[in-house]
């Protein structure tokens, strides 16, 4: 019997993306540049996060025309973002045939109490998380992939590192706890007990873990892979750099050879200006994207 949209089929696509770079693109041309550079998938959106941050206003799902153009331009998987809790946007994206939906804090949240019930969809979802409890709540809702949130559109990797370390440290902590402590941990994390138990037993998330939000150079990619990410999302970092095609290619190579400083040194040479970036201390608390969602 054929079964579609099972957890294994959804999580399976995330497994295929491992060791790869998923790049934000806003046009079919950018999508082709990303594919040519070796991206394992692209994320179709209206504006990259740094422009969303600059422009303000409400950030919504991408125009279906644009999503379809990007899907037609490349053969690699195409992802698109829906607002947190906006299941109607997600239904539209599923109907367009995108390969993955990112329920993303980069867009303006549509619901301040509830995320999308992702089990209701055959398309897989990726969700952001700042810590293990948040990651397990999203997985409990049906997310087939997790990305640490970082702080999108800043070109600053510090929050990505903080969130990734928080997730991996909490996983390590769970894996050494005696079983009688797991229920209390589930309560403290605000996470489903069965998932807490599974993480404690396996020492890893039940889905693939990528890193997002501020990765903008080959060295950044290497850093977060060495810290335990299984791949990276690069948003503004590519197309807000001086030479997008070269930067894109260098980040792809750095992701494969994240453990090889000689290759990293080679690919980091002469890339021109990376995106300018911002110091997080200059970002007021109400402008932080990572605090959206719960």
């Amino acid at each position: 019997m054929i079964e579609r949209g099972t957890a294994r089929v959804k999580r399976g696509l995330a497994e295929m993306l491992k060791g790869g770079v998923i790049m934000d693109v806003t046009t079919a041309d950018e999508a082709r540049i990303a594919e040519e550079a070796g991206a394992c998938a692209v994320m179709a959106l209206e504006r990259v996060p740094s422009d969303i941050r600059r422009d303000g206003g409400v950030a919504r799902m991408c125009d279906p025309n644009k999503v379809s153009e990007i899907m037609a331009a490349v053969t690699i998987p195409v992802m698109a973002k829906a607002r947190i809790g906006h299941f109607a946007e997600a239904q539209i994206l599923q109907s367009l045939g995108v390969d993955f939906i990112d329920e993303s804090e980069v867009l303006t949240p549509a619901d301040e109490s509830f995320h999308i019930d992702k089990w209701n969809f055959t398309v897989p979802f990726v969700c952001g998380a700042t810590n293990l409890g948040e990651a397990l709540r999203r997985i409990g809702e049906g997310a087939a992939m997790i990305r640490s949130k970082g702080e999108a559109g800043t070109g600053n990797v510090v929050e990505a590192v903080r969130h990734l370390r928080s997730i991996t440290d909490e996983i390590r902590r769970l894996s050494v706890l005696p079983s009688e402590q797991l229920m209390t941990q589930a309560k403290n994390l605000g996470a489903p007990f069965e998932l807490v138990k599974e993480v404690a037993e396996t020492g890893r998330l039940p889905v693939v873990l990528f890193c997002a939000g501020g990765v903008s150079t080959p060295a950044d990619a290497s850093l977060v892979l060495q810290l335990g990410a299984e791949g990276v999302f690069v948003g503004s970092g590519i197309f807000k750099s001086e030479q997008p095609a070269r930067m894109a290619r260098a980040v792809v190579e750095a992701t494969t050879y994240f453990n090889d400083p000689d290759v990293l040194a080679k690919v980091s040479r002469g890339l021109g200006e990376p995106m300018r970036g911002v110091d997080l201390r200059d970002v007021p608390a109400d402008k932080l994207l990572a605090t959206r969602g719960w």
Binding site: M1, I2, E3, R8, V9, G12, G97, D99, F100, T122
Partner: peptide, 14 residues
Amino acid sequence: RNAYGRQSESFEAD
């Protein structure tokens, strides 16, 4: 390549 279609057509079977 991708001969069954996009991810929505991905499946499992015995």
